[in-house]
Amino acid sequence: MAGAIVLIGPMGSGKTTLGKKLAKELGLQFIDTDKQIAGEHGPITKLFEEKGEAYFRDLETSYLEAALEQPAVVATGGGAILRQRNQELISKHHVIFLDTSAEHVIGKVNMSKRPLIRDNPKRWQEIYDARLSTYQALAKQTVFTGGRPIKKLIQEIRDGLGI
């Protein structure tokens, strides 16, 4: 398959966990843009605090551009879809929206590493609601991940890819 497989969705939807397994199964490289940014610039929470969200979003765009230059499974940050430039980059690839619900996320993710909800977990739903239409508009495939076995999710994605 040409291009990348791009995983989008809210924080805690399984982009990293599922992305690693999907990439391994498909024999592709796995790229997690948030992990790359954190690896080179320090914790994302600290970046938000010290340099602001706009600075982080600039980094995110440049890492996304680089990640999409090769066939790979690319996990984006939950807010990567907020920028028009990122939407343009992402839309040229097979985009999978990993959907979930607050009940499957809150209590399961490390809140200290989630700057947008760390002090108010109920914000997850507000953020989800605000981004939902963009996730849906970009997606060529939607997979609900909440509480579902990874093997079934991988098969559903493979079916959607036609492989």
Rank of each mutant, 00 (worst) to 15 (best):
T145W: 03
I5W: 06
R123K: 15
Q70I: 12
V109D: 08
E53F: 03
K92P: 10
Q29P: 10
T45D: 07
K108Q: 13
E65H: 00
R148A: 05
I5K: 10
R131C: 03
G39I: 01
F56W: 05
F56R: 04
T76C: 00
T61P: 04
K51A: 11
Y55L: 08
I37R: 07
K35C: 11
M11L: 09
I96C: 11
R123Q: 15
L153S: 06
G146N: 02
L18K: 07
E40F: 05
R57V: 00
N120D: 15
M1C: 06
K51M: 09
T145G: 02
E65C: 04
E103N: 05
R131H: 09
R158M: 15
V6I: 04
D99S: 14
Y135S: 08
I31P: 07
A67L: 01
A80Q: 04
H104C: 05
K20G: 06
V105R: 12
R85E: 11
K21L: 12
T33Q: 01
T142G: 09
Q29F: 10
V105C: 12
E60F: 01
Q136D: 10
K92W: 05
Q125C: 05
M111N: 08
F30Y: 07
T134C: 07
I106C: 07
V6Q: 09
F48K: 00
I157N: 07
E50K: 13
I31Y: 02
T16G: 09
E53M: 00
A139E: 12
